[in-house]
Design a protein around this nucleic acid. Sequence first.
DNA 1: AACCGTGTTCGGCAACGCCGAGCATCGCGA
DNA 2: TCGCGATGCTCGGCGTTGCCGAACACGGTT
Lengths: 260, 260
Amino acid sequence: MAAPTSDRVAGVARALKLLEIITLGPADGMNLTELSKKIEISKSSTLALLRTMTDAGFVRIKEPGPRYLPGMTLLRLGDLSRTTQPIDEIAQTYIPALAQEIGMTIRVALNEGGRPVFISRADAPGSVRFHTMLGAKEFPSVSSAGKAILANLSDEEIAAVIDETGLPTRTKHSHGSLSSLMRDINQVRARGYAIDDEEDVEGIFCIGAAFFDHAGRCGGAISATGIKTAARQKRTAFFGAQVVKCADAITKELHGRRAR
Amino acid sequence: MAAPTSDRVAGVARALKLLEIITLGPADGMNLTELSKKIEISKSSTLALLRTMTDAGFVRIKEPGPRYLPGMTLLRLGDLSRTTQPIDEIAQTYIPALAQEIGMTIRVALNEGGRPVFISRADAPGSVRFHTMLGAKEFPSVSSAGKAILANLSDEEIAAVIDETGLPTRTKHSHGSLSSLMRDINQVRARGYAIDDEEDVEGIFCIGAAFFDHAGRCGGAISATGIKTAARQKRTAFFGAQVVKCADAITKELHGRRAR
DNA sequence: AACCGTGTTCGGCAACGCCGAGCATCGCGA
DNA sequence: TCGCGATGCTCGGCGTTGCCGAACACGGTT
């Protein structure tokens, strides 16, 4: 974007951007002129890109009046890139049971430079379904998984991460300052798990706990999400213990296997 | 590949191929020389492609001795391309319950020109986890979902599809001829659901039933997969009815909403 | 029937990205 | 400790590629 395009392949960058536009676009697809306007490339060039990506299965054409949709190759590679993560298989064996047990939606996030990237999810039966953007980097300050990860960084590292990401104020409970966040983080360190009390979404309550890879570094965190109710509030300590127990089990499994 | 590269963008095609190689490659990634050899492109050009894709987040670099891995953008877009399918949300509300009820792994496939493409999965608690390649086109002749889809095509269309895909003999129970398959298909039509009795994998037993979109066309199928046991065999009719019931529920939901 | 708006084709100019050679760096073994 | 090989990375020149704009074809609408 702002970077010098030297020794990069402009055509590929445009294609990937186009792919993202298509995927983020409306569910019934976009047509050629819409796409070409959006990406600011001539129609003929846009068409060439689309054709190339269609050949490779990354883009699907929906007749009539050709509309372009994300193709199945994208889904295939995306799924594959998740399942090859060693953590995924482990998580899939522990997560559904926890979701069942405490009746909350469980999510798994990787630690990407101090920020959580959610890669997996398990719903509790009958629970409200929470929309999760898999693969997207979340703000660490407004999610319990993010805070659980932060708690394992040094104070300087935390400051550096927050300096980059900023502190979004999603609700009136969101942390507005670094010092406020740090007070919370210190509680997390003492408590062993993180709490997100309506800091991301009004009425939503989360508990998060970190797990650690074979080198002892924080590999990520799991979090439990649910509607904030009085009954649930009362049992926070119990739920917290369950989440920590599950995270610890994942840590143990991770230690059992080499990086390969 | 074999097609004339006219009005296609060669650079993009190479990049996408590279992306696929990386994703299909080993879990700990590949280095530059390996990749450049595999794709048969000079190292410098390969590097330029990798850098471009890294900028866009499609490729991730793992230090040390830079190894290249699929990036998080791939996961994000892949997940997004699935969740924007109208079928996905519906399936996610019905599928886990069915998995729970009959104790088998449930999968959802779309109908892509007569071939099943699996886009979603729900495991039964405690069941063996079956490895599923999401987004990949399966052979229609060796899966119950595939046969459930085929059963809704005309005999000529079936012949055309099989002519393209061929009849792979995965096990000794796989259909070896079109006539053998057609006999099976006719049973499916009469019965209302398809059975895969060790035709894909030795010892694995599946039941599949189709669902239909708002235009009345076969939109895909769901299938239940499990280890073949005597107890399960005996209750085939009951399980079949449950799978059909679930597929019908999905059909009803699909009718309720416009293409939008 | 004329008119937009769409998708698609075509040709020419030049920029872009491909390649191979050379340099820097790391890691392993003697 | 030193040297050698392999790997990642840089650089510049040549040639091809892929970009663009204009023109064409088609369909639906007024």
